Every structure is written in structure tokens, then in C-alpha cells.
Computed example of a mutant assay.
Amino acid sequence: MALHLLKLCVGATSIAELEAWIAGRAAAARKSGVAFEQVHVTRMVPTRSADLLDGGSLYWVIKGEVAARQKLLDLRTFVDAEGVRRCGLVLDPDVVRVEPRPSRPFQGWRYLAAKEAPRDLGADAGAAGLPEALSRELRDLGLL
């Protein structure tokens, strides 16, 4: 059964910003002739790697909401230059929007059971074509 990770998306204030950051890194890799691979480095190493790699995703919390996810492709542990053990979360570069759900701030990452994960937003969802800020405002007003 798939298990997911939940993590704050530090530095991005919207899904569009996250997607632009990924696209920029991919373009820079292409320009330098290197194959692009999106790896997010975290200090803690998940112990349940088999469950995470069995269809798991990294769910991003953006501006206090679980807003998007990226499929986990691999987990790579390594020791950095300071001798600290770290984990590289290898992610599919495609960002999938999910039904927004409030989330309180936390440090690091948390496991997220498959049954607790928000559903993906389909292209036919009512707010799928709206700008993120407008969609958030309409949700806050209880109109979506």
C-alpha cells in the first residue's frame, strides 16, 4: 500500500512558482548538457522507503494548504561534505494539483497515509482553470 510524504514548500508562494522553479532548473540542466533530475534533499531519511516507492508522492504544503504533489521515483541516502547523513528525494518533475486542504506549519516532513491524502484535481474541476489566488479567495469565502 502506498505511503506518501508531506512537506512544506519553502520559498514558493504558489504552485505556479514551484512549477516555474522546476522548469528553470530543467532549462539550466539542458543548457549545460546535463540530464535533468529533480532531487529534493532533506536531512532525515525515511525508514519506510519500500512503502514510499510503492506509488507514493511528496505532497507540498504551500501557503498553509496541501496544494500539490509530485510522484516519488527514488530515495537516495548520502553523507554531505560536513559528514551529515541526508536523503535525496527523486521526484517526477510533473506537479499535480490536489484538492486544497489546510495544514499547520511543521518542521521536516511527515508521513501521509494514502487514505488521508487529498484527491487530485482533474482538469474538469470547477476551479481548475482559475488563477490560484482567485481560487484560494473563493474557497476562503465558501464559494468553492
Rank of each mutant, 00 (worst) to 15 (best):
V79A: 04
L138Q: 07
S14H: 07
V84P: 13
A12I: 00
R136E: 14
L58R: 02
S49L: 03
V61S: 03
V95Q: 06
S49I: 14
V45M: 05
L5M: 12
A68F: 10
A20M: 07
R119V: 14
S14G: 12
L143R: 14
D51E: 15
A23P: 01
F106L: 06
S135V: 03
A133K: 13
L6E: 13
L73K: 14
S57C: 11
L53T: 11
A27W: 01
E99T: 14
G83A: 05
E82R: 11
E116W: 07
L73I: 14
R86Q: 15
R86T: 06
D54Y: 03
R139S: 07
T13L: 12
P131T: 13
V66A: 05
A2M: 13
P102Q: 09
D74Y: 02
L138Y: 03
T47Q: 06
Y59M: 09
V41W: 03
H4M: 10
A20N: 12
Y111K: 06
D124F: 12
D120L: 03
V84S: 08
P102K: 06
K115A: 14
P118H: 12
R139Q: 05
S135H: 01
R119A: 15
I62D: 02
I15D: 04
Q70I: 00
D54K: 10
Q38E: 08
T77N: 00
E37F: 00
L144G: 08
L18Y: 05
S135I: 02
G142D: 12
R97V: 00
V66H: 03
A2R: 14
L138W: 02
A26S: 02
A35F: 00
L75D: 03
E37W: 00
V61T: 07
G64R: 12
P93K: 05
S14T: 08
A133L: 13
L8V: 11
D54W: 04
L6W: 04
R85A: 02
A68D: 09
E65M: 11
R119Q: 15
V66R: 11
L52E: 11
R101N: 08
R85E: 01
K31E: 15
A16S: 07
R101K: 15
V34K: 13
L53R: 05
F106N: 02
R43M: 12
V95L: 08
R139C: 02
K71V: 07
F36N: 07
D74G: 04
A35C: 00
L3H: 08
E19C: 11
A123S: 14
D120C: 10
K115Q: 14
L134N: 10
A128C: 05
R97Q: 04
R97K: 10
A113V: 02
T77M: 02
V90Y: 06
G24V: 09
L134S: 13
A123C: 05
K63A: 11
K7F: 03
L89K: 01
L143E: 07
K7S: 08
Y59Q: 07
G129V: 03
C87V: 05
D92M: 04
R48L: 12
I62Y: 06
R104W: 06
G11S: 09
Q70Y: 01
I62V: 13
L58V: 04
A50G: 06
P46G: 04
G33R: 02
P105D: 04
G83N: 10
A117M: 08
V95E: 11
A23K: 04
L112H: 10
A117P: 14
K31W: 06
A133E: 14
L141R: 15
A125G: 01
P46R: 04
L130D: 11
A26F: 00
D80I: 09
M1L: 13
P131K: 13
